[in-house]
Design a protein around this nucleic acid. Structure first.
Ligand SMILES: [Zn+2]
Ligand SMILES: [Zn+2]
Ligand SMILES: [Zn+2]
Ligand SMILES: [Zn+2]
Ligand SMILES: [Zn+2]
Ligand SMILES: [Zn+2]
Length: 279
DNA sequence: GAGTTTGAAACT
DNA sequence: CAGTTTCAAACTC
């Protein structure tokens, strides 16, 4: 799992809605459709992140690191895999093209409506999906491209029979480890180097014998990121104020203590365990 | 290529 | 929300 050292250099606020496959954004007239989530115009206050299941608010410090984002990403270099849909008209999230907010091209789909010739239907379908799940069309793999926090599946997988070691598993397919966000059973995708391309020391995925599920169920990747953000913000505060190192260390440690307290409380809260009460 | 397995998405 | 069905891809032979 995540060793404390991995938290050190990390950080970034969770600016989720940032880059979409198709730039043409349009929020006013809803008839120009793009798989864009309706942006809740956030008040221009300081960015914050809420810890799940606890009303905790972390102050995040965007800082100069925000601009480092998206340096290596080329614009449209990724080649889209053609789909083979037959019954969804490529207008449901079953279709990979549609789910990626893209139009079918060079696909082998049948009765495809996911093209400019069926703009109306496509637009309506996007609306339906967005209405059902506002987070649809958001990238499933959330990863701040900096620091040591690995990417993670924002919803987690629910695998039962693959051990999360086959491409059926979205985590494994994305070459990322399963996290406490996942609800998989018999997961083996929590060790280092999932899906290492070459040296596949394939341990047979038996149904009978599985190692222990990863613990730390309350410490989701989002929580880790939020915590790291807090610590870095504190560090930068100290640096800006010109404190001597021991003082800065003390500040950071105290911040960490507060983070931990909040995390523990949130876990207790979600487990219906009181602080003063024996489990 | 046909047939099976799998888990997300859709549906009830 | 949970249980079920549908779906397209991953996988097997
Ligand atoms: Zn399709
Ligand atoms: Zn397609
Ligand atoms: Zn299509
Ligand atoms: Zn999985
Ligand atoms: Zn997973
Ligand atoms: Zn897993």
């Amino acid at each position: 799992m995540l060793s404390p050292g991995q938290m050190n250099h990390t950080v970034m606020a969770n600016h989720s809605a940032q880059s979409m496959p198709h730039p043409p954004v349009q929020s006013h007239s809803s008839d120009h459709c793009s798989p864009q989530e309706k942006v809740n115009t956030v008040s221009p206050g300081p960015p914050q992140t809420h810890l799940p299941s606890a009303g905790v608010t972390f102050n995040l410090m965007p800082g100069p690191y925000a601009s480092q984002e998206a340096t290596s990403m080329c614009v449209n270099t990724k080649l889209k895999r053609p789909c083979n849909c037959t019954k969804s008209q490529c207008l449901k999230l079953y279709c990979e093209c549609f789910a990626n907010g893209e139009v079918c091209k060079n696909c082998k789909c049948i009765n495809c409506f996911n093209n400019t010739e069926h703009e109306a239907e496509r637009c309506q379908a996007i609306k339906v999906c967005l209405d059902r799940t506002p987070g649809a069309f958001q990238p499933k793999i959330g990863s701040r491209k900096q620091g040591n926090v690995k990417g993670h599946h924002t919803k987690g997988c629910n695998c039962r029979r693959s051990g999360c070691l086959k491409n059926y598993c979205e985590c494994y397919e994305a070459n990322i480890m399963c996290t406490s966000t996942c609800k998989c059973v018999g997961c083996r995708n929590y060790e280092e180097s999932p899906k290492k391309k070459s040296s596949a020391q394939d341990v047979p995925v038996s149904v009978v014998y599985y190692p222990i599920r990863s613990p730390l169920t309350g410490i989701t990747p989002d929580v880790v990121e939020a915590t790291c953000s807090c610590l870095l913000a504190k560090a930068e505060d100290a640096e800006k104020e010109g404190y001597i190192l021991p003082h800065a260390e003390k500040m950071i440690l105290e911040e960490f203590g507060q983070c931990m307290t909040q995390i523990v409380q949130s876990i207790f809260k979600s487990t219906n365990v009181q602080l003063n009460c024996q489990a």
